[in-house]
Amino acid sequence: MGFPFHPRLRPLTILTVIGLVVVLLSSCSRPSPPLIKLGITRWPGGAFLFLAQEKKYFEEEGVRVQLVEFVSTPDAIDAYKAGEIDGMTCSTLDMVKAAEESRRIPQAFIVSDSSNGGDVIMARDDIHRPEELSGARIGCENSHLCKYLLQSALDDAKLSEEQIDIHHITQLAMEDAFRQGEVDALVTRPPVSIRLEREPGVHAIYSSSELPTDILNVIVADKTLIDQQPEAIRSVIRAWERAYKFYTKNPDLAQRMMGQRIGLRPDEFARSLEKIRLVSPEEKEHYFGEDQGLLVSTEDTHRKLCDMGISDRESAVEKLIAPAALTTQP
């Protein structure tokens, strides 16, 4: 036995069904948000990407982001060159070298922070200043940033690379190498440097605080992606800025969330942030707008890399900065 049916309801019922079908078909045909794969290391300034992911800001801004974790920046650069990721967190030094070593063009679209003591040379208790590194075994990641910091320290101490013994060690292996006496000093950064501070007698003898404007950290994406998916990149920028604002309003909770992702206690993560200068969303106009602060800084860094013999003077660094129309507009 069927349900009773009133003839007057029939047109309305048909229209309702048609409307539902149209809605369902439109939702099925709507393209899914693009997937952007970003390489990330455990640098505290980049951890705001983890926070944006935890808070689901990427989803809410209409973009899918996969954070691909790497032990070291050189590993992330290799993955970028191989086309395995679309972009990464890195320093402007690494960005310049990635462009020189690849057919791809990385473009910075977010300035996250500048290192002001975060990148550091730590030594055992009988080495107190860079001048005492002569003859020392120094653990150093095979990265351009580590080479730059170490060379800067040697230049200040009037030492040459021939006067030290460099051991190429990944950040992951540095703590064990130091504790087992395989090296006398390390070129390192958080979270490793923060954990090493717990060790008796271990102390910093040189850091990026000696080079406060040199080590600028950015988030880059391949130029092709930026050209083809500008709205997706804007969504990433908005998610990043929301994570930053969440941190300013809820610092304790944010530090706990980000610290967990990079292996530090909340107090340790807070201490790691003291060694960098976070760049607020309000400063993006300075870096990407008329001041061209990012370009000026990158050109200066490039000149220093060239003077050290690390970089190619023919590199055109201006192509490594994303357009202001993309980065400064909401």
Rank of each mutant, 00 (worst) to 15 (best):
residue 1 M to W: 12
residue 3 F to V: 07
residue 4 P to L: 04
residue 5 F to Y: 08
residue 8 R to T: 10
residue 13 T to I: 14
residue 15 L to N: 13
residue 17 V to F: 06
residue 19 G to N: 08
residue 19 G to R: 08
residue 20 L to G: 12
residue 24 L to V: 13
residue 25 L to T: 06
residue 33 P to L: 04
residue 35 L to H: 11
residue 39 G to W: 01
residue 40 I to S: 06
residue 40 I to N: 02
residue 45 G to K: 04
residue 46 G to L: 10
residue 50 F to L: 10
residue 55 K to T: 07
residue 55 K to N: 06
residue 55 K to Q: 11
residue 56 K to I: 02
residue 57 Y to H: 06
residue 58 F to V: 02
residue 59 E to V: 01
residue 60 E to R: 09
residue 63 V to A: 00
residue 65 V to M: 00
residue 68 V to P: 01
residue 73 T to A: 14
residue 75 D to E: 10
residue 76 A to Q: 04
residue 83 G to R: 09
residue 96 V to A: 12
residue 98 A to I: 04
residue 102 S to R: 07
residue 108 A to Y: 03
residue 109 F to Y: 08
residue 109 F to C: 05
residue 110 I to W: 00
residue 112 S to I: 02
residue 112 S to E: 12
residue 113 D to Q: 06
residue 113 D to F: 00
residue 113 D to H: 14
residue 113 D to V: 05
residue 114 S to T: 11
residue 116 N to E: 15
residue 116 N to T: 15
residue 116 N to V: 15
residue 121 I to A: 07
residue 123 A to R: 13
residue 124 R to F: 09
residue 125 D to E: 13
residue 126 D to N: 08
residue 126 D to L: 12
residue 127 I to C: 02
residue 131 E to Q: 07
residue 132 E to D: 10
residue 132 E to Q: 10
residue 134 S to Q: 15
residue 136 A to V: 00
residue 137 R to T: 07
residue 137 R to W: 11
residue 138 I to W: 09
residue 138 I to G: 02
residue 139 G to D: 02
residue 141 E to S: 08
residue 145 L to Y: 14
residue 147 K to F: 06
residue 151 Q to P: 06
residue 156 D to R: 09
residue 159 L to E: 03
residue 161 E to M: 14
residue 163 Q to N: 13
residue 166 I to E: 03
residue 167 H to I: 10
residue 170 T to M: 15
residue 171 Q to E: 11
residue 171 Q to R: 09
residue 181 G to C: 00
residue 182 E to D: 05
residue 183 V to K: 02
residue 185 A to N: 06
residue 187 V to L: 06
residue 187 V to G: 00
residue 189 R to E: 13
residue 193 S to E: 14
residue 196 L to P: 03
residue 197 E to K: 15
residue 201 G to T: 01
residue 206 Y to A: 00
residue 207 S to P: 01
residue 209 S to A: 12
residue 212 P to E: 06
residue 213 T to A: 12
residue 219 I to W: 01
residue 225 L to M: 09
residue 228 Q to R: 14
residue 229 Q to E: 15
residue 229 Q to R: 12
residue 231 E to V: 09
residue 235 S to K: 04
residue 237 I to N: 02
residue 240 W to V: 01
residue 240 W to Y: 11
residue 242 R to G: 02
residue 247 Y to W: 12
residue 254 A to F: 08
residue 261 R to Y: 11
residue 264 L to Y: 05
residue 269 F to T: 00
residue 272 S to W: 06
residue 275 K to R: 11
residue 277 R to V: 02
residue 277 R to G: 07
residue 284 K to N: 11
residue 289 G to Q: 07
residue 289 G to V: 01
residue 290 E to L: 08
residue 294 L to W: 01
residue 294 L to H: 04
residue 301 T to Y: 08
residue 303 R to G: 07
residue 305 L to I: 14
residue 307 D to N: 13
residue 308 M to N: 10
residue 309 G to F: 09
residue 310 I to L: 14
residue 310 I to S: 08
residue 314 E to F: 13
residue 322 A to I: 03
residue 322 A to E: 02
residue 322 A to M: 04
residue 324 A to K: 03
residue 325 A to M: 05
residue 325 A to R: 04
residue 326 L to C: 01
residue 328 T to N: 13
